[in-house]
Amino acid sequence: MKFKVNGHEVFASTGGRPFDKKKPLIIFVHGSGLTHMTWVLQTRYFAFHGYNALAIDLPGHGLSSGESLKSIEEMADWVNDVIDAVGHKEASLVGHSQGCLVTVECTSRYPDKIKTLSLMGGAGAIPMNPELLSLAENNDPKAVDLMMDWAHGPAGHFGGHPVPGLYHINTGTMLAKSRTIQNTLGVDFRACDNYKNGFEAAKKIKCPTLSILATDDKMCPVKEGKKLASLIDGSQVDIIDNCGHMMLLEEADRVLTVLKKFITTNYPPLSS
């Protein structure tokens, strides 16, 4: 569906179901340079089981208009604006990678609005490799290739996508190259690199929180994810073996199973 936030058109996938204001809202926030499509193996389930699942394209990404937001703090406020724009008073947030920084910051800023927080491949800070950052800011496609290399675990490099026939490294590459790299990945990487408030923000979070981490995640290693989780009261941690940073694709089924249990328990769906 399309709607406006701050005068710009926003695209969000609703998981194949019409938006229904009566249903509780879950917002999925993608990682650096990516789009709503990374969530397809999570959103459809929730959309068909009593939720409004909104997999958003951040401004300037995917099918959303406007320019990319330059800081994690701006993105956090923007996610709050999305909740207002679709006419809801509260939401559950799910983030991946950079989306974790955004959702952690958003939850800390709007504690009364955010009912649960699910983090995948999250950390309190994501400092960027300077060369990778430079490549992305200079619009070099090698930045995407490096990101896809590092973002997939050794097993993920062989493929084995849960959806038959999909080769996820190439799919991720296409998503990250679908808009101008320096305007999406470049801006996002810089925003991640600049963001220093993750650990402080985490301390303010009081809602039920889940961290899904992966043993072979090179971009946000398990120990960084655990460090973040340790700062959030009662945070649950689930660790996936033989999986890299792109867990929502590499181990989509496992991720959905864990996410489903966590969200339906803490933020029940609208009964049919």
Binding site: G16, L41, R44, Y45, F48, G159, G160, H161, P162, V163, P164, G165, L166, Y167, I169, N170, A252, D253, L256
Partner: peptide, 27 residues
């Protein structure tokens, strides 16, 4: 059936051995 999860239902639609071939050629 509703494409909410990846996986196999019936070998006319997909099959794990065939799936390896599909990914291999795509790669």
């Amino acid at each position: 059936f509703n494409l909410e999860r990846g996986g196999h239902i019936y070998s006319r639609i997909s099959n794990p051995t065939v799936g390896v071939l599909e990914e291999r050629v795509a790669s």
